[in-house]
Lab assay of single mutants.
Amino acid sequence: NKFNKEQQWATYEILNLPNLNEEQRKAFIDSLKDDPSQSANLLAEAKKLNDAQA
């Protein structure tokens, strides 16, 4: 299913963002699990935070 693929991709991407700390990473991944339909939005937020902390 589409959300499952998006969720897996977003999880992979978030795990590989270098500037997030473990707590932030875990929070994003927990949110992905809670609502896979928000995968794209959550990934965008994670990338923004990652860039802000660069």
Results as ranks from 00 to 15, higher is better:
A46S: 02
W9K: 14
E23W: 09
R25T: 07
D51G: 08
L32W: 03
N16Q: 10
E23Q: 09
A10F: 06
A10T: 06
N21W: 11
F3Y: 07
L49R: 04
E6D: 13
F28G: 00
W9N: 06
K5V: 05
K33L: 10
E23K: 11
N41H: 12
L42M: 13
A46Q: 00
E45Q: 10
L17K: 00
A52G: 07
Q24W: 02
F3W: 03
A44T: 08
A46L: 01
F3S: 15
I14W: 01
N21E: 08
E45Y: 06
L49D: 02
K33P: 02
N50W: 01
N16D: 04
P36E: 03
K2A: 14
L17T: 01
N4Y: 14
L42N: 03
L15Y: 04
K33W: 14
R25L: 05
W9Q: 15
L32R: 00
Q8W: 07
N4I: 13
E45H: 05
L15W: 08
L15G: 08
E22N: 12
N50Q: 02
P18S: 06
L15E: 14
D35Q: 08
A40N: 06
D51K: 10
E45K: 10
Q38G: 07
E23T: 11
K47F: 06
D35V: 09
Q7R: 02
L17H: 02
K2D: 15
Y12M: 10
P18R: 05
Q53M: 13
R25F: 03
N21S: 11
A27L: 11
A44F: 08
L49P: 00
S31D: 09
S39V: 13
I14Y: 01
D34R: 09
A27N: 11
W9V: 14
K48A: 10
L43E: 01
L49S: 03
I29V: 07
L43D: 00
A10W: 03
I29H: 03
W9S: 06
D51P: 01
N41R: 14
A40T: 10
W9R: 14
S37A: 10
K48M: 12
N50P: 01
K48E: 09
N1G: 09
E22D: 12
D34H: 09
F28P: 00
K47D: 02
P18G: 07
L17G: 00
A27F: 06
F28R: 00
S31K: 13
Q53K: 07
I29S: 03
Q53R: 07
W9M: 14
Q24A: 03
K5E: 15
N41E: 09
A52N: 06
N4T: 14
K33T: 13
Y12P: 02
L32G: 01
N41P: 10
Q24P: 00
Q38P: 01
S31T: 09
P18K: 07
E45M: 09
Q53D: 04
K48R: 10
L43G: 01
N41T: 10
L32F: 03
W9L: 15
F3K: 15
S31H: 11
Q8E: 13
P18T: 05
S31P: 02
E45I: 11
I29Q: 05
K33G: 14
K47H: 08
F3G: 15
Q38I: 07
E22W: 13
A27T: 09
Y12L: 07
I14A: 01
K26T: 12
A44V: 11
A10D: 03
E6W: 04
K2R: 12
N21D: 09
L32D: 00
L17S: 01
N41S: 12
K33Y: 15
Q24I: 05
A52I: 12
Q38M: 13
D34A: 11
N21I: 08
L20H: 00
N19Y: 13
S37D: 05
E45A: 06
K33I: 14
E22F: 11
L32T: 02
Q53I: 13
A52Y: 09
F3P: 15
R25E: 01
L32H: 00
I14V: 06
W9F: 13
A44H: 09
N50I: 01
A44Q: 07
D35M: 08
L42P: 01
L17V: 00
A40G: 09
F3I: 15
S31F: 10
F28N: 00
W9Y: 14
N1A: 02
K26W: 10
L15P: 01
E22T: 12
K26R: 13
Q38T: 07
K26Y: 05
L49Y: 05
T11S: 13
N50R: 01
N21L: 12
D35I: 06
E13S: 07
A10N: 03
S39Q: 03
K47L: 13
I14L: 04
D30R: 09
I29Y: 03
K5H: 06
K33D: 13
Q38R: 10
E22I: 08
A44I: 08
F28M: 05
F28T: 01
K48V: 11
L42R: 08
D51H: 07
P36Y: 03
L49T: 07
P18W: 03
N1F: 00
A40D: 06
A52E: 12
Q7L: 15
P18Y: 05
L15I: 11
I14K: 00
K33Q: 14
A40W: 10
E23P: 08
Q53N: 07
F28I: 04
Q8K: 09
N16G: 09
L43T: 04
P18Q: 08
R25D: 00
L15N: 14
L15M: 13
L20G: 00
S39I: 15
S37M: 08
L15K: 08
K2W: 14
K47T: 09
